[in-house]
Each structure stands twice: as C-alpha cells, then as structure tokens.
Nucleic acid binder design. Structure first.
Lengths: 250, 250
DNA sequence: AGGCGCTTGTGAACGCGTGCACAAATCGCG
DNA sequence: CGCGATTTGTGCACGCGTTCACAAGCGCCT
C-alpha cells in the first residue's frame, strides 16, 4: 500500500486555486470513487438532476452507508432530505481523481493484449489519452494501430520529452516487464499499470497496480470448486450465500 | 502441464476421494493463492526443490508472515528448518483452486478486448480452456479467431449442452452486459468475469468478478494528482513512501 | 409559520486482515 | 547423541474498513 505523507492538514475544505491539500482518503474509498463516477455519468445522461445515496449506491453496487461515508470524506456535497447534485458531485469526484486534466498514457507491448488496449475507447472517454505505442519487436515498429504508429522502445526517452507521460501501461510478456518498468521509471513515469504476470520492483515513489486476467479466473475457479463440493455434500446448499459481487481493487 | 488427481496423502486432513470439505479460507488468502502458484512455477522451472517462506514471499511480493499464515490455512505442508516442498505445494494450491480439472470458459463479445482475450495464452497455460466464442453481431459470426469459430449468442444454450461451462467471460459493451449475464445464468453458468463497465445483477449463487481497466487508470490518476500536489506543497516530499505495489483482488 | 417526512452525515461497535514476535520442530554437524 | 542454526506455525495486538443506528438538517405541504 502506498503510504501517504503530506503533513499540512491546514484548513480542511481548502482546495483553493491550483494546489490542493488532500484529506487523506482511505484507499478503499479511492478505489470506489471511479465506480461512483461511472454511475453518476449514467444517471446524468438519464436526465437525473439529483440522486439519493440509496439510489446511487444501488447503481454502483454498494451499501448506501458506505457510499455516504465515502462521499463525506471529500466534503459535504449533499443536501439533507434531497440527495446529491449529480453535476456537482461529478465535478467533485473528477477533481479529486485528477481527471480534470487529460492524462497521457504510454503503452508498452503491442502484442495480443496491447493491441486491444490501444483501441479500447474506455480510455479516451474516461479521461486518458494514449500518446505512444512502444514495442521491442522491430517487426512491429512502424505498424499503425488505431491511428498511432508503433515506435521502438528505445525511443521512450524521446517520447517522454515530447509529452509528459503520467502513466505507463505494461502489456509485454512477463520476462520483459521488469526491464520495461525500469525504463519507464528512468523516463520519469511514476504510475504503472502492469498486465504482465510478475512482480515489479520499483522505487518507493512509483505506484504500481497489477491486473492479472488469469488470476481472476483462478479465483473464480476456486469458488466453482467450493460450490461443487458444497452441493455434493450432505448438507449442501445450492442457492444461498450472501452478496457475491466482487470488484477489483486493492 | 496437466496434473492428475493428487496422489492422496490420505494422512491428515480429510480431503479424501472426490468430495472435499473446505476449511473456509479467508477471501484475502484465496486472492493471493494464484500469485503464490505463479511464483512457485517460476521457482520450480528454475530448478528449486524447496523454498523458504521468505523466498517465496519475496517472489510473490508479500510479507513472509502473511504467506505462512495463508499456507497454514490449507494445512501443514512445510518442514520446519527447511521450507516448503515446491512440487507438493504447487499440487496443493492447484487442488484447492480447483485447477486439477481444466475448466471450460465461454467468452461473449468478440470486439476489441474479446478478440485479445481469445488469443491470450495465459488462459490456456494456467488451467483454462476457451471452448466457445459468442457474439450478437451477425457480421462477426463465422469469423475464425485463434482456431475457434465465432458463434451467435443465441447458440449459448446449445454450447452449454455440448460442454459444461464453468466460467463465462463478458467482454461486450456495457449496454449488452446485463442481458448476456442473464443468458449465461440461464445456461447454468455460476461464475462470471465481467469486463464491461457496469454493475451486474445476478442470483445469489452466482459469483461475479469485475475488471474495469479505466478504473485502474483512474486510481493511478488519483495518486498522480496527489503526488503532484504534494511536491508542490511546502513540506512536499518527492521520493518517500514505503511499499506501493498494489495488486488487484478483492 | 409550524410540523412532518425524508435524507445526509457520523458516532460507535464489530469483524477482518495484517504484522510482530516467539515457541515448537526439524535438520545437520561435531 | 546432543546442540545450535534455521524455519515453520501461530497467539496476540493493532489498525482499517464496514455496518448499524440515529441525530441533525432540509424542503414541502398545510
């Protein structure tokens, strides 16, 4: 877990001008904010003006008390007896997540997965812009993918100069991932999204999030296994259990 | 490497024959087991025969005490003063995760992402087999992708009869996801991996895991935002912080 | 203006997960 | 055969996150 430092705690609701002192939000809250944001966008397009915590919680798939506590961490943006102003809340969450500025993303590894990521419109529509595709394979360099030309990984420093890269995405095989991570760090990238199935070692100020598709399946496999053994058991219960919607996040 | 049924070791915990009563493992532990498994495979290929909790913890990127506690939940498979037998531990974890049987996966939505998932070898190499590709778009039906022919979503019931589908993967746009989920449930699928950015509503006995790539980026964006405001602050420190490797998992 | 119903914001309790620190156990060696 | 080195397994305490339950606040209707 990244640990935050930041002394300050000056005023509180501050958030004046450009620089903002963050109330230290719990990690769990941060991981849920994007989900709230997505739900709010949906509701907004549906014409809703305000939304109650109950309604938003249902749309985001969480407990309403949890949602209220999460939102209370970023200040009081609700009205008792009425609910939350959808537009205002969207603005708030986007500000906290730093989405008011479109962040440049650099994607390394244009294989099977990287190719798909390069064309994923969810990135563009939610605050990000892929500014470079890189690969070590000379056969891939020069290829045009969704409007971008694949460049060689050695050009990373040059790319970093052209544009301030906020986030690097690693979609290479596991064997190449650590080397790529090192180069990204050298180029000044401080946030990495890693799709390679391996552990990355990075300096303390660099944040790494890992997504491993096979792991997700294996977790599901466990639950399948467990359910199968339960139904086969004497007291086996087949259709019980509490909530089961598990979402990714740390 | 297919593995056969475990050679019994009838010595201690039940786990006899076909049906097994599970010690109820903490969810957090389950989410880490696949990571341990991956690290063990790496170590095994490296020729290691036994591994200490310290070594394995380093390879998996976790605390060694945590790892020992996790493993202790599945029984005592380590030897004090020596460490864990790599092969035995692999067998154990694969058994608990239900990977001793290759599970059939059905992938719905052969768009950008689905196309990549269909060709992702991490699935095949880690205990899963994609047995069907489905899509609602007639233009895509019949297309051959990585050796599989895309079939129409309406054929899902037929596919379910041909092969027992353990896990369904949804890689459709958000608007179609709920309908697909309903059809999967009707077809008897009890585990779903959802890549669509929306909340799915399913019966209580169905497990859903969600992977949202944009959310991962947004979480990183927050940390970027926070780091930026910290360095701009008077007492801002730039290169501090402890571990920061966050992994996906619920 | 006053009361009523609704919704937010939060205090407090609970449970889970984590990490420390140490006892128990095993191996190797003299 | 006994001792020390090493490593597992775990009791315990702490902190975080979740949930309940309720007081405080707001708007609307009469």
């Amino acid at each position: 877990m990244s640990q935050q430092r930041h002394g300050s705690t000056s005023g509180n609701g501050a958030r004046a001008g450009a620089v903002s002192a963050f109330p230290d939000l719990p990690e769990a809250t941060i991981a849920r904010l994007p989900e709230y944001l997505r739900a709010l966008h949906n509701l907004g397009e549906g014409g809703a003006d305000t939304i109650s915590s109950e309604g938003l919680a249902a749309a985001a798939g969480v407990n309403s008390a949890k949602l209220r506590k999460d939102l209370s961490h970023l200040g009081s943006y609700g009205t008792r007896g009425v609910g939350y102003d959808v537009a205002l809340l969207i603005e708030q969450i986007e500000y906290v997540l730093g989405l008011d500025q479109r962040r440049a993303v650099c994607l390394v590894g244009v294989g099977n997965l990287g190719h798909a990521l390069a064309g994923y419109d969810g990135f563009a529509s939610r605050g990000f812009k892929i500014v470079a595709l890189l690969d070590a394979d000379p056969a891939k360099v020069g290829e045009r993918i969704h409007g971008l030309i694949v460049r060689h990984i050695d050009e990373l420093p040059a790319v970093a100069v052209e544009e301030t890269i906020a986030i690097g995405v690693i979609a290479t095989p596991a064997g190449a991932a650590q080397a790529v991570a090192d180069e990204l760090v050298t180029a000044g990238v401080t946030s990495i999204l890693n799709f390679a199935p391996c552990v990355l070692s990075v300096p303390a100020n660099v944040d790494v999030r890992k997504v491993d598709l096979a792991i997700e399946l294996q977790i599901l496999s466990f639950h399948e296994h467990r359910k199968a053994s339960l139904t086969a058991l004497p007291g086996g219960r087949s259709a019980t259990g509490a909530g089961n919607q598990e979402a990714v996040g740390s």
